[in-house]
């Protein structure tokens, strides 16, 4: 009995003394080189707000557990992360990390937090008209008819999709950044997501058959044009006629 007790105490002591260091070592050893590079980038640029174990820091940044590589791709590739300062919403800006670094960060977050992964294949492989219908049903109420963007409350906004690439749009739907809802594969199937992307990018690239697009936002821009161009030109015309009298 005493021998067993002594053995248990010894094992426990040994375990508590050796195990954590050993385990950490093992974890680091099992990391791929990309994950290790990602960890280094994370610890340099992200850890202040997202915490040392991706658990997030209250009042600074959310937990990244479950965010997945999709969220990392969207946030870092559009330049939203790393954040410059806390404000209503992270603005997009030129990306700080290059594609290789983004891959490393994605690998690190995916390995440690898990979550939605990036799609592969042709992201525009979907029905154009159905994509338009789905866009107007799910996206237009914030992003405007053809993705010109729109205002939300208190300085937040749904950004213009003018500069968004296929993967950014797809990863945004998967991860629901900022105020955007998450459109998981249950809400919009991968085929439907591809249709939406096809619609957005096709209409974006399509020329305006009616002439200058004036922002494609409808009556506000049209009102500006009729007063600043139309009425101004005609007032000038009648001044001219008046001066001929």
């Amino acid at each position: 009995m005493a021998g067993l007790m002594a053995a248990l105490v010894l094992t426990g002591t040994l375990y508590s003394a050796l195990s954590p260091a050993h385990a950490t070592e093992e974890a680091i050893q099992s990391e791929s080189s990309a994950e290790a590079a990602g960890r280094e980038l994370y610890e340099r640029s992200c850890i202040t707000c997202h915490g040392e174990n991706l658990e997030g820091v209250p009042t600074r940044g959310p937990s990244l557990i479950g965010a997945g590589e999709a969220a990392v791709y969207f946030q870092v590739h559009t330049g939203r992360m790393p954040l410059v300062r806390q404000e209503a919403q992270a603005p997009d800006k030129p990306a700080i990390f290059n594609d290789e670094e983004i891959d490393q960060l994605m690998a690190y977050i995916q390995a440690n937090g898990g979550g939605p992964t990036l799609p592969s294949g042709d992201l525009r492989d979907g029905d154009l008209a159905e994509g338009g219908e789905l866009f107007r049903l799910n996206c237009a109420q914030c992003h405007n008819f053809v993705g010109e963007g729109g205002a939300l409350s208190s300085g937040k906004r749904a950004p213009s999709l003018e500069d968004a690439n296929d993967l950014e749009i797809y990863s945004a739907m998967l991860s629901g950044p900022e105020n955007m809802p998450i459109f998981g594969d249950n809400q919009l199937t991968p085929e439907e997501k591809r249709s939406i992307i096809n619609y957005i990018q096709t209409v974006k690239e399509q020329a305006d058959p009616g002439g200058a697009g004036i922002g494609r936002i409808g009556p506000v821009a049209e009102g500006v044009v009729i007063w600043v161009v139309g009425v101004a030109a005609l007032l000038f015309g009648i001044f001219w006629m008046g001066s001929k009298a």
């Binding site: 338009g132 107007r136 237009a140 405007n144 749904a158 209409v203 409808g218």
Partner: peptide, 15 residues
């Protein structure tokens, strides 16, 4: 660009 009318849909900045 606006699309056909559907009461279930609405766009931001409808003026």
């Amino acid at each position: 660009l606006w699309g056909p009318y559907n009461p279930a849909q609405v766009s931001a900045a409808s003026q």
